[in-house]
Design a protein around this nucleic acid. Structure first.
Lengths: 342, 342
DNA sequence: ACTTAGCACTCTCTGTTTATGAGTGCTAAA
DNA sequence: TTTAGCACTCATAAACAGAGAGTGCTAAGT
């Protein structure tokens, strides 16, 4: 991938920019008209022909304008893309959103609102993965007796996650025994991350307390489920936005994406495995085949310097990369604060 | 709306049945062929012409077959529809689902799974409104100190709803004072439904405890939010199913529905206001204009003989009413058990 | 050695025409 | 009252022509 001549880069940039705006194949004449490159259409034609040879552009058919190829987009985001910038309006909007988010107390609400904002601002579809329970450390477990038969068990992690569940109390248990069991568990598990409380460890605890197996297994089940509940932690925003994209005017294409949107586990997998910081995956760079006509831009957010969740924007490969990246960066970095103050 | 002659009813039924299956305007000949009414096409034509005059059928254009009008569907579901029935396969599937649902402990999980099942079985889009917090009665409020500054407050209703929130403790408060405040609140609020704990009542409490206003308002905020958090309690299933319906092959039509699906509060409103038992709303009988090409079948489910939530199926007016109603009834009645045992 | 103007050629898109076929409404006979 | 027959209507699909945008190539200009 030797260096492209300066002129070729300028032309490639013009093609990508134009195509992002218009969604129409862009011809040599419109470039020489709209962008002040001081070159005739014929020259540009020659260069475009070269760029196609090199794999940066494609032609839908012989006598049409050019469209950026996946490789073309890649080069664009890596080297050509304009500097990130927000309009004054967008900045104001974001500032408002941030103060609003700051006030919310429920994590679900925050995540959902974030998804919505992200989609409204970008006009694409947004994905937000809430903070992952299983990455945070076990802090303590509490038992709140409700009546003779039932108690509420509350699981608290160091990251402030809280999960509760009603369990049935074995009749024969004194309240003293109860608190013994709980404090034993607290001792054993304190400080470990939820995902590291492995099955073997749980098995061992089970044998330690085999006399109280009925109660214990209810408590442990809560833990176990917490470490594996990947499903359903992803919130979407602006799913209908994809319908505004001309590349999805065909219902068949939409269907695949829509169906994908219903598969929470696959979505959360994509976000979980996205690398730290901002990542841009164009077309088939996405592992998910349904996304091979799309680009996905993601960013992670941190809690105590560990990535605990991610946000993303999904649009056609013909996406306003620069704008989206800026917005995503802003929101992700703000999310760091929101999550910490929770 | 005088009685339709027996023959007219049979023909109307044939048209509706046929159209539900094929989605094509149905002509007089295909009826005389496919349904053994022992009438010639010409006779059927005359009858159909009458039925159109009466408003039960419409013609997309002069020389096309007939399509049931909204009134036609209404008559069909009120008087003509075949008896509800499930295939053996569906029954088995339902039985499996039920045992699965029975095992789940998290209400969100149950609701989501119900939505999924409902959409898979019907091939339409499903809406499920989770049990409403605000209809159940206040039972008790507990405070779990976490550390010096923070405590977890847990709100428990008689229906078993549980909600928690971390609040900041005013430093100056002894644990004794704390428990006094909490038990005072418990006394004052016990037994009232969340939605009836009105603003005036809350104001009164506020003045009673004005010395501890900072703590109190945090506690009361939790209550207040609980009584008004209509938003977001609706889960959808099979949203992509609408794309399989030929009436939605046009992207524009889909867009309106898709956008509606993102407006949780409007959806929950529809479900909340649906009457007890099974209700069928056809076309413009739906208040929501986006649904005017659709039919919505809903059913409520109960807890202690009070409706606390609802499930629904949304499809084109050309919907398999009989089948969907049966399925919805089964699932709703089963949900009664699941919710009670929670 | 580039760059550019000119030109023939290609291919899509749009509008028009034409043919086909399903289905109707009406009339007249059974 | 039912039915057979027939002319008529309208949507849909196929075939076709013309326009327009854009290309590639060639030859002339710098």
């Amino acid at each position: 991938m030797a260096g492209l001549s300066d002129r070729k880069q300028k032309i490639l940039q013009a093609v990508v920019t134009d195509y992002i705006q218009t969604a129409e194949p862009v011809g040599s004449r419109s470039i020489s008209r709209r962008y002040k490159l001081d070159l005739s259409a014929a020259t540009i034609r020659n260069e475009m022909s070269d760029l196609e040879e090199l794999g940066f552009l494609t032609q839908p058919h012989t006598s049409a304008g050019r469209i950026p190829s996946q490789q073309g987009y890649r080069f664009y985001v890596d080297a050509l893309m304009g500097p990130p910038s927000l309009t004054r309006q967008e900045e104001v909007y974001l500032a408002n959103v941030f103060t609003q988010l700051q006030k919310m107390r429920e994590i679900d609400q925050i995540v959902q609102q974030t998804a919505k904002v992200l989609s409204v601002l970008t006009s694409y579809t947004s994905l937000v993965l809430g903070p992952q329970f299983r990455h945070s450390a076990f802090k303590q477990m509490r038992l709140l007796p409700l009546d003779e038969e039932k108690a509420l068990v509350v699981l608290i992690t160091s990251a402030g996650h809280i999960k509760h569940r009603v369990i049935n109390l074995p009749q024969a248990l004194s309240s003293q025994e109860l608190s013994q069991i709980v404090s034993y568990l607290n001792e054993q598990l304190a400080g470990q991350t939820i995902e590291n409380i492995s099955a073997t460890r749980l098995r061992q605890l089970r044998s330690d307390l085999y006399a109280r197996i009925d109660l214990l297994s209810q408590l442990l089940q809560l833990l176990e489920e917490s470490s594996t509940d990947g499903e359903g932690r992803v919130f979407l925003g602006g799913t209908s936005n994809i319908l505004n994209q001309p590349e999805f005017k065909d219902v068949e294409k939409v269907k695949h994406l829509l169906t994908l949107f219903e598969e929470g586990s696959r979505l959360s997998f994509v976000l979980e495995t996205s690398s730290e910081g901002v990542s841009i995956r164009i077309g088939t760079e996405n592992v998910i085949t349904e996304m091979s006509d799309c680009s996905l831009i993601t960013a992670t957010y941190q809690l105590y310097n560990r990535p605990v969740g991610a946000i993303g924007v999904l649009g056609p490969t013909r996406m306003e990369y620069s704008r989206v990246i800026t917005i995503i960066e802003h929101i992700a970095s703000h999310l760091n604060f929101v999550v910490r103050d929770l």
